[in-house]
Amino acid sequence: MNETFNFSRWLGLLKIQAMTNGRKQLLCILAIFGLTFLPLAWLMVDGRLGHATTFSTSIKEAGLFLFLWFIFMFASCIIAVMGCTQAARAFKAYNRRESGWIAMLLPASRLEKYTLIYFWSVVLIPLAYCLTFVLSLLASYGLGVLIHSQYLATIGTYYHEIVRQLDELMANFSVNLSPLFAVNWWGYVTALFVAYSWATLNVIFACSAKFSKFPLLISVVVLCLINTFHSIAFAFLAKDTPSNSTDLSLLTEVLTEALNESLIFQGFVGLVALIIGYLCYKRRTLE
């Protein structure tokens, strides 16, 4: 049969999702924003209020900053993964006898329902988390500019300055700080990739009828993870980053290249999963 697609009905479905599952996601987004913004804001405010030499005079403060940075970033990653998982798990209700009937008998086409599930858990939520992370970086920088308006550097310069100061401070301990900062972003993005893969698989799982899903699910997860780790690690190795490098632009370039390569693959996997998921969704029944 011909599957219809009515955009106003689709928006109605989106409204239902936003009302029934949006609150948890909003809380996750706020938590991620807070956790990534706070350590940066603290550093920015502290560093710009006439204490620019903070790190070069106090290893204790630098250590505290690093400690907080990693803890908060780790917490952000955990929340991002949990949020993505929750977003996809919301649709598991579709498979339950007591709750699935609402979704199945809602007067919208299967194409509308399926694309909504996919959009919500694979596109919208991971994208919102990514944007939140970037926005929190911009907001912390904005706060610094607001407090110290004559400091009109770019965000890249700002990080460069932080890295330079920390690097100077830690030189005696032979610690290369640049990768540490990169690792945060890498960790966050990797966490999001895991979450994205998990969400994609959950969508397939939520929409599946009776088919041999486990081998498929496991293969997709493994492929996504291997690709992500491999492409990022390979990009680092290939660039031959000097151990004492403080050039953030190099790291950015390496990461961008790795992530672009990885994203293409994730996109391909996502597309295949989308098609398989839809075919399964069409055949779905409730027991």
């Binding site: 009302m19 029934t20 209700a93 006898r97 007591e98 709750s99």
Partner: peptide, 11 residues
């Protein structure tokens, strides 16, 4: 269809 058992959303 009003089923015998039903789980409803939090609204």
């Amino acid at each position: 269809l009003i089923p015998e058992d039903m789980t409803m959303p939090h609204v």
